[in-house]
Simulated assay, not measured.
Amino acid sequence: MTEILRADTLRKSYDGFLAVDGVSFSVREGELKALIGPNGAGKSTCFNMLTGQLKPSSGEVFLRGARITGKRPREIWRLGVGRTFQITGTYASMSVAENVQMALISHHRRLFGFGARAWKLYRAEALDLLRSVALDDQADRPCSVLAYGDLKRLELAIALSHRPRLLLMDEPTAGMAPSARIDMMQLVADVVRDQGLSVLFTEHDMDVVFAHAHHIMVLNRGKLIADGNAEAVRNDPRVQEVYLGGGTLFKEARDA
């Protein structure tokens, strides 16, 4: 598989404290890759450097072989990198479809001059995106009445509106019921398969990670301590010791 993203020796320091310390990894086309670790491990800092929200203290980020270090978030978005956040951000007063239409208007550079016609623009395309996340039956409902899991699906549709080739998802199942978490990640896995999309995601739910990730990376205190398939990560003594205190929960995940 072709490499779509590469992080090369990323470091981020705050007043001498290394939040991310020499992290290197890659994501390949069509790969669903997880980045896990205890709270404070550096996952969000790492994500923010990949998307241009933070500038690395040192190191480089490459997208399809081209250096993107130092580019602004919108420039990176235009290059085909989407992102979802741990806390959803939608327009509560707008309908589900209108939220996606606004994203499409931005993608097509129609933010200025559309006036009162905005509700007509890209309606069919918005409905297609909502259909891809099983939300088309709620297209005309206001976002303010949606269940939290449906808001997560809507955020995914919005992230897909500019046809990204790489999607970064920060805890996509946070705040969802256990059964809804599995459904959400199955939906993401289906999108990866159907669209050839690459996804890098952070997650605390080990059932979600082990059920769906093709490869798993583990951060601890800013350092990457493991990178491999589920079985290799489960059996890594360093991961068992520093992430789950001797491996008890890993054993439960394996035996479940």
Rank of each mutant, 00 (worst) to 15 (best):
Q86H: 12
S58F: 05
T69F: 08
S26H: 07
Q138P: 07
T248M: 13
E231S: 11
G40R: 08
V145L: 05
D21E: 12
I105D: 03
D140E: 14
R28T: 09
I76H: 01
F17G: 08
E241W: 10
L79R: 11
E98G: 03
H162L: 08
R74K: 14
K71G: 05
A211C: 11
L111G: 13
I76Q: 01
G222F: 04
Q186R: 14
N235D: 14
N235Y: 06
A230R: 04
R72G: 11
N39L: 04
D190L: 06
K12S: 06
D205E: 13
G247I: 01
T2F: 03
R254F: 12
K12E: 07
I158G: 02
R72P: 06
G149F: 01
A211F: 09
G246A: 09
R123M: 05
E29M: 09
P56L: 05
R110F: 01
V96I: 08
V208Y: 00
M49F: 11
L146I: 09
L146D: 01
A226D: 03
V61Q: 00
I87K: 14
Q53M: 13
M94C: 10
I225V: 12
L50A: 07
M49H: 05
T88R: 04
I4G: 00
E231R: 13
L104S: 09
V209L: 01
R78T: 10
I68Y: 02
H162S: 12
V61Y: 00
R165A: 11
Q240R: 15
R28L: 04
R6I: 07
L168V: 10
L32Q: 02
G175F: 05
H212F: 15
A118K: 12
Q195H: 13
S132V: 04
V20F: 03
L167F: 04
V100K: 02
L5W: 00
R234Q: 13
H214D: 15
R254W: 14
G30M: 00
P38A: 08
P164W: 05
T248C: 09
D170K: 03
G82C: 08
D137Q: 15
I105W: 02
M176Y: 00
S93D: 15
A177D: 10
R234L: 13
L32Y: 02
S24M: 02
D227G: 11
K223W: 10
H107A: 14
Y148A: 07
R6K: 15
D205M: 07
I182V: 11
A34F: 02
L10G: 05
Q53A: 11
Q186T: 10
L35V: 09
R74N: 15
F114N: 11
S58L: 09
H204R: 06
L135I: 06
N220H: 14
A134H: 14
D236T: 04
T69A: 10
D255P: 08
R28N: 13
D236V: 03
R11Y: 15
S132N: 12
R234H: 13
T51S: 15
G59N: 06
W119V: 10
G115A: 13
E3P: 06
K71C: 09
K223Q: 14
E241N: 11
G222M: 03
K12P: 10
R123S: 13
H107N: 14
R181H: 08
I216P: 02
L219K: 01
F114T: 12
G222A: 08
